[in-house]
């Protein structure tokens, strides 16, 4: 057996799993969007002319973008401190970030039901303090979805950025300082440009993750705050509109892939080390 045949023989089973288990079914879903409607593009025409669908798509964009932005700011600040911490403290902080990351999305979203619910901690506290007379309804608002979503994705952002920030040599900022740069200037002109590729990777992970999430908008947003993921589920399993569900799926895939491609382009262009 030649090395080439052996290599393909070893690579083939996993390749078949991806092609038959993911490739074909996803292509079939795409095909449904072109054949399921009245004409070849009818399903998309229906999607984009429906006000409700546009609202859902826009809301999903908005929630994902705001989540990404907040996670970026807080994740970067925390990752900076973690990366500069002494070894012992650093490993504890990493443990504290990994723990929620590896805890399931249902558990982590459920926590916010307990916190933000009608009889939840926030309401109980405010009532006891006499700050409000009636419990506030915070669930099923865009705000509650965003809070839970940020909670979901900040650990991912921290862990991505810690690795990136650690790889920036201390010598570089020292050199900038010895050449007379103030700490602020050294940060802006040396650290930030070098961290940009990492910031982009983190943002892509958070944006695509929140854009396609299901459990969190389901639990904290409900019907009122329908997002693409919950909308897909509702179309597929409640109204059995498979063409509609497939169209939502196709739009999600296009948005995800476009984000990944555009951002990796951008990362390449902005990377000061490569090119």
């Amino acid at each position: 057996m030649t090395a080439r045949t052996l290599a393909w023989a070893l690579a083939m089973p996993a390749l078949l799993l991806v092609l038959l288990g993911l490739g074909l079914p996803v292509l079939a879903t795409f095909a449904t969007t072109f054949t399921g409607g009245e004409g070849p593009l009818a399903a998309y025409a229906e999607f984009f002319t429906s006000r409700f669908r546009r609202v859902v798509l826009w809301r999903t964009f908005e929630v994902a973008a705001v989540t990404t932005l907040i996670s970026l700011v807080f994740g970067f600040a925390a990752a900076w401190v973690v990366a500069k911490s002494p070894a012992r403290l650093k490993s504890w902080l990493i443990i504290a970030a990994v723990f929620p990351l590896l805890t399931g999305v249902v558990v982590r979203s459920f926590a916010w039901l307990v916190i933000l619910g009608r009889g939840g901690i926030v309401n109980e506290t405010l009532l006891a303090l006499g700050a409000i007379a009636e419990p506030l309804s915070m669930l099923y608002t865009q705000g509650s979805v965003i809070v839970a979503m940020v909670y979901l994705f900040v650990p991912l952002m921290i862990l991505t950025l810690v690795g990136v920030l650690e790889s920036i040599p201390e010598d570089l900022t020292d050199a900038a300082a010895s050449l007379g740069a103030r700490p602020g200037a050294a940060f802006r002109q040396v650290v930030l440009p070098m961290a940009v590729p990492g910031l982009i990777v983190g943002s892509v992970l958070v944006f695509t993750g929140s854009f396609t999430s299901y459990a969190t908008p389901q639990l904290l947003g409900g019907e009122q705050q329908m997002m693409m993921g919950t909308f897909l589920y509702q179309r597929a399993m409640v109204t059995f509109d498979w063409t509609g569900a497939s169209t939502i799926a196709a739009v999600m895939v296009v948005v995800t892939l476009a984000t990944v491609l555009a951002m990796s382009r951008l990362a390449q262009r902005l990377n000061p080390v490569a090119s």
Binding site: V18, L22, T29, T208, T212, G229, L232, S246, T256
Partner: peptide
């Protein structure tokens, strides 16, 4: 690829096909 394709799309497509 399974990372790039949204999980919910994978779930729906697997159910359908």
């Amino acid at each position: 690829l399974p990372v790039l394709i949204p999980e919910i799309v994978l779930g729906f497509s697997l159910m359908k096909s």
